[in-house]
Nucleic acid binder design. Structure first.
Lengths: 153, 153
DNA sequence: GGATTATTGAAAATGGTTTTCATTACTACA
DNA sequence: TGTAGTAATGAAAACCATTTTCAATAATCC
């Protein structure tokens, strides 16, 4: 906006955190890729262009980014945590989830998202005040059986 | 209601699953205890009265109960999956979550739950049809920094 | 430059969860 | 009642995502 570099850089300097190649690459991949990347997903993508970056660094960076509120960590219960950019200007946009408890398939949906987000916004305002939280994101997931799995059981 | 035994027993017979002492004890504990029990929480409680029941059985039973839609598994990202009864007549009731991403504190809230659930119900109906899912539960969590943690960062 | 501090990779450790396997308990059926 | 077949179980081992350790390297501050 002011030609000073990526939007997240000020968060780094604010927190006295250095902008390194590894961190830049990881953020770029999160920015360019559809959602739900796990740490090893990211590792494999990073590895193509930067084979010198280890998995440990991926984990450390993701935790750092989570603390700085650049990234949101989610856990859908399939054994891998997933990460997505919180404040992604060019990204896919906000969505909710529909999860099959049997085959673990995850569907992202955006239908009704406006109505939902509107309603959740009111809740968020209320909760922020009542519990004195600084809320910056939410997760909405529906659980059930998908087309295939519901006929089997 | 009809004096035939607990509400979940028919689900067992429907699925040709035997009602064993271990399963009964686990369900009772889930019924009698406030939410968010992890597998090892349950194990420790079970161990008091039934020291012969192993942790493996706890995990196996919980997975079974999840498949039978008696229990819902949640993962808040703190390293332990949590379980709660889906259709708990005498239980604490439905609630949503407010989670601190820094200290991992989880607050259950029921404020605004009616408005939220009403709104989510419409979404659920829509999604069920569009994606041909059999939806039986949802998870709503707000993420942010709690009173203590937001002043530190 | 030189000291301090942050960052990193490899390997090892951790710890929740799952699998294996041999044993036991239940059920169906004669 | 036996007896076969199947389900359920515990203990130990395996699994695997994530964290920690530790020694080496890179950036920053004077």
């Amino acid at each position: 906006m002011h030609g000073k570099g990526p939007w997240w850089q000020e968060k780094f300097t604010q927190n006295c955190v250095r902008v390194t190649a590894a961190r830049e690459v990881i953020i770029n991949i999160l920015h360019d890729t559809p959602d739900h990347l796990s740490a090893s997903d990211i590792y494999m993508k990073v590895h193509v262009t930067n084979p010198d970056i280890g998995l440990t660094t991926i984990y450390r960076t993701l935790e750092l980014l989570e603390q700085m509120r650049i990234v949101q960590k989610f856990d859908f219960g399939d054994g891998h945590a997933r990460y997505e950019l919180l404040n992604n200007p060019g990204g896919k946009g906000h969505h909710h989830h529909l999860i099959c408890v049997k085959c673990k398939k995850i569907i992202d949906y955006k239908d009704f998202i406006d109505e939902e987000v509107n309603c959740l916004g009111k809740t968020q305002d209320f909760l922020s005040q009542k519990y004195n939280f600084h809320i910056n994101d939410h997760l909405v997931s529906f659980y059930g059986f998908c087309e295939n799995c519901k006929s089997e059981s």
